[in-house]
Design a protein around this nucleic acid. Structure first.
Length: 567
RNA sequence: CGGGAUGUAGCACAGCUUGGUAGUGCGCUCGGUUCGGGACCGAGAGGCCGCAGGUUCAAGUCCUGCCAUCCCGACCA
């Protein structure tokens, strides 16, 4: 393909609205063009990359035994109302009425539609297992599109759905998909990590998120020195060796007036108490019974952890009136001393001393509070959100908090949709049962963004070969010279005949412009043809990634390109 | 949806304080000289100055409202 025959609008100045590396470079390299917030066109180069990614996804899905289908993007709203997701979707749904007054939803995902298919056709246990997938545009009216192509209102998703007769079958499909995902992301050149998501109270459900660490992602997760990621929801820290303070017991508890001062910040600021020396006392209703949860003033309580420590089903923050009943004081003055309800404390609290906390009396706090002397803790545990510097539970050292981007997600759904939409089959005994489902998603556009985030330098993109828009770019130093462009043309023909995707920069531009554009668009191998080399029958082959240049005889170019691409 | 910022040519920006009828660099077109890491000279094309209303003899500039875009946060089936 010749540069003059393909639209590659490279930019010297990055548009000012771009912040993320992938966003800036995708714009500068002429991959995308923004139409409105969170809505992008893919230009020829960008679309070539998407095609390569899609080809890999498709190949691995097929290899894993999934069958490609194409479901509609236009969904009747009634279908979404049946599963109750019409409401849960809320403002994220893009919906409209047609002239007949029928409401449609532009598909944000396809559990409903695929389950309707299963309900129609998967009638006998003999029809199982089945895995269907599609690669298609999804619509979500994101409140805040971000970072170019990383979070958009319209995006291409590979979504797959498995149907099985039992959990054992689901396990097999889930594993197959998970393995396929490993292959897909590896082939796309991404350093991804798998995060086990919380199985929570969902009973047997399970999910894994495939993440890449990148500064412009959207999730904050904990990473241990061993490279393991855990969502902040479930990241745990190591238990301290001794769950008690070694410091001397402070003087007796003393109350002091704090008129209208309720928050940790207000009191910490007014009385010059570090927030870590304060106890935040949160009242929760656990299965209907009030409990107090204590964390130090500088930390955030993690409700998932509290729920786990308590071992209860229902947990919610207490209403103002419930707080008053439990503590005898309005919200903002709760403290563990003299409290009648069971007290659960974070390790930081039981390991500390000389705290300031609420006095369970309006406009009063108390100081010199000591957990050994002044109140009873029913149980101590890891109750707060982890933060940078906490020791990892696996003993690998300090945790770090990093930003990540989710590029894939596999999920064991169970019967949620099949039961509601009556995707029922008859088993060997003639019993009607809902199909056991799994769902598996990949954000195709995000792979493009993630690849740029991971593979770029100050000059431009360094595409992994498998998803590069072209394998090799030929650059003529001076297009006007006959020997140069005829040599370039021959190389182009030879390489194309060997099956390489070749971009030949045949523009009558100065060499510098072409070199810079080549580095910017990031094709892995560059072949430079100039009269200087041609005099000796040589061209230069440059590896974009390393910058390494070697002189190659004309006759050996194909071989040199081939081996360069394998590195 | 809350907070902050910004809207002037394809891209980056100046002009706004102190109103007088549209500028710069890159890119684009034509001619010429150049030609191995973003050349130079000359001549051009390209603007509802985000939109609407107001003030004024006169608005890119002042006032009001709206819209759009980006960043932080909330949210993310």
């Amino acid at each position: 393909m010749r540069w003059t025959e393909i639209l590659i609008p490279t930019l010297r100045n990055p548009p000012k609205d771009a912040e993320a590396a992938s966003h800036k470079l995708a714009l500068r390299a002429g991959l995308i063009r923004q139409l409105s917030s969170g809505v992008y066109s893919y230009l020829p180069l960008g679309f070539r990359v998407l095609h390569k990614i899609i080809a890999i996804v498709r190949e691995e899905m097929n290899r894993a035994g999934a069958q490609e289908v194409l479901m509609p993007a236009l969904h009747p709203a009634e279908l979404w109302k049946k599963t109750g997701r019409y409401e849960t979707l809320g403002d994220d749904k893009l919906a409209f009425k047609n002239r007949a007054g029928h409401e449609f939803v532009l598909g944000p995902t396809h559990e409903e539609v695929v389950t309707e298919l299963a309900a129609a056709y998967l009638k006998s246990f003999r029809d199982f297992p089945q895995t269907l997938y599609q690669i298609q545009t999804k619509f979500r009216d994101e409140a805040r599109p971000r970072f170019g192509v990383i979070r958009t209102k319209e995006f291409i998703m590979k979504d797959a759905y498995s149907f099985d007769v039992d959990d054992a079958g689901l396990d097999i499909n889930y594993t197959k998909m998970s393995e396929a995902y490993h292959r897909i992301f590896s082939r796309c050149g991404l350093s991804f990590k798998v995060v086990e998501a919380d199985t929570g109270m969902m009973g047997g459900k399970m999910s894994q998120e495939f993440m890449v660490v990148c500064p412009y992602g959207e999730d904050r997760v904990a990473i241990s020195k061993s490279g393991k990621l855990a969502s902040l929801e479930i990241a745990k820290r190591a238990q301290p060796a001794e769950l008690v303070s070694k410091a001397p017991v402070p003087p007796a508890v003393e109350a002091f007036e704090t008129p209208n001062l309720r928050t940790i910040e207000e009191i910490s600021h007014k009385y010059k108490v570090p927030s870590a020396q304060m106890i935040k006392t949160l009242i929760y209703m656990a299965d209907g019974q009030p409990v107090a949860a204590l964390v130090t003033g500088d930390s955030e309580l993690n409700e998932v952890k509290l729920r786990r420590l308590l071992g209860v089903k229902e947990l919610r923050q207490a209403e103002a009136e419930e707080v008053r009943q439990a503590t005898g004081a309005p919200v903002g003055f709760a403290g563990p001393v003299g409290l009648k309800v069971p007290v659960y404390a974070d390790w930081d609290v039981v390991c500390g001393t000389d705290f300031v906390t609420g006095a369970n009396e309006k406009d009063k706090h108390i100081r010199h509070v000591d957990p050994r002397r002044d109140f009873q803790v029913k149980a101590a545990g890891d109750l707060r959100q982890v933060r940078t510097g906490d020791l990892a539970e696996d003993g690998s050292g300090m945790l770090d908090i990093v930003t990540t981007m989710e590029i894939g997600h596999v999920f064991k759904l169970g019967t949620r949709y099949s039961a509601q939409l009556e995707a029922l089959f008859l088993d060997e005994k003639g019993e009607r049962k809902p199909a056991i489902m799994g769902c598996y998603g990949i954000g195709v556009n995000r792979i493009l963004a993630a690849a740029i985030e991971e593979h770029h330098d100050d000059k431009g993109i360094l595409w992994p070969r498998a998803i590069a828009p072209f394998d090799v770019e030929i650059i003529t130093v001076n297009q006007a010279i006959l020997e140069t462009h005829s040599a370039a043309q021959k190389i182009e023909n030879d390489l194309e005949a060997l099956g390489f995707d070749v971009l030949y920069d045949n523009r009558e531009e100065r060499a510098g412009v072409k070199f810079n554009d080549a580095d910017l668009i990031g094709v892995p191998v560059q072949v430079t043809v100039g009269e200087r080399g041609l005099k000796e029958g040589m061209v230069e082959v440059k590896l974009r990634r390393t910058g390494e240049v070697s002189k190659i005889a004309l006759a050996d170019v194909a071989q040199a390109v081939k081996s360069a691409l394998q590195r």
